[in-house]
Design a protein around this nucleic acid. Structure first.
Lengths: 187, 187
DNA sequence: TAAATAGCTAAACAATCGTTTAGCTATGAT
DNA sequence: ATCATAGCTAAACGATTGTTTAGCTATTTA
């Protein structure tokens, strides 16, 4: 043993995540990462391998936040009301710390959708796409809904969620609340 | 006078637009532009000044498409039904030529939202934000709606439109149709 | 206290970025 | 036919990209 690190990886990766969240992957440089993470390039490379590695670790960090929300969502048992709460929680997560950059996962999906980045794709598909199934589960708790209605409403809610994420960037809290209430008015 | 150009600027800029649409600005290189536009770097610079100029001209080209749709929307006079048709037209525009990259203006807004690019910001604000007013105008055609209802519904429709644009990237035509019908069920 | 070693600093790396330029080609005008 | 000129080709520009490395610093261990 010799010197010990002057930083904690869990802390600097949070800072990296916020930078990627604001700028996206392609528009974030190693110079910016150095400044934002508060450590030298050498330290970044020794801890995370390369820029790509920093990004993947940032995604994991973000997904941990999302996972907490998902767990809460799954563990509740109030049907549609849970979905509505999930919408409100999503807004809180997208807006934390004054951030107004929507959802990092959605942004990443958009930025990498044309590329064939295996690692990023893997990280993405593990989260995108199962949202609809979660909604379907919750909607099934209402015995008065038939299967066709459930499918249509689930699909509707997935796309409504997209609108919501986009909304967190430019709309006021009141407008967002109005949107959510309106969305669930006839569900 | 001497030689005449071997390309038409209106044609090569369309090709540039499609590339920017697919990749975004930052992730598009001059090399890619050369290949996609089918002309040399020199020709690109002599026609459009620089990469930034190519992008601004591409935005104008895209906005021309959108403008056509907006004009149709404004000139009709069937209230809410016009808005619904506008949603369907939006999907057609976002998906033309097998493209699945959402709306170029929305994407550009997202990519440049953290930067302070005066020219791009100008091009953006001239289109974003007035959508709500257009919706309000149409909703006013229904005398049974009071002002508060109109405001809420207009806000809801703006965000629903965001969901729709995101939807064109990953959802089937049937799912998108379901979403639109559901959105207008209680408007 | 001294040797060993892991972390840090800062300079340099090759590759690619957007951009410019020198020289060649082709065409309109005299 | 020839001169002038605008367009094209392709090489090179400096700056910045992500990445590596040599040399110094500080701390643990014996």
């Amino acid at each position: 043993m010799a010197r010990q690190k002057e930083y904690k990886e869990e802390e600097v990766i949070k800072k990296a995540m916020r930078l990627f969240w604001r700028n996206g992957y392609g528009n974030t440089s190693m110079q910016q990462l150095e400044k934002e993470m508060g450590i030298n390039k050498f330290s970044i490379y020794s801890s995370f391998g390369n820029k790509h590695g920093v990004f993947l670790e940032s995604l994991k960090c973000y997904k941990a936040k999302v996972n907490t929300m998902f767990e809460k969502f799954k563990n509740n048992s109030n049907g549609v009301e849970d979905i509505k709460q999930f919408f409100y929680d999503s807004v809180d997560l997208c807006e934390e710390e004054g951030n107004e950059k929507g959802c990092l996962l959605t942004n990443t999906y958009n930025e990498f959708s044309e590329s064939n980045d295996a690692l990023v794709n893997e990280q993405m598909t593990s989260f995108m796409g199962n949202l609809k199934n979660l909604f379907i589960e919750k909607l099934r708790m209402d015995p008065s809904k038939d299967q066709e209605t459930i499918n249509k409403q689930a699909n509707y809610l997935v796309l409504a969620k997209h609108g919501l994420v986009a909304a967190t960037r430019v709309n006021t809290p009141k407008e967002i609340e109005d949107y959510i209430e309106m969305t669930f008015k006839n569900i």
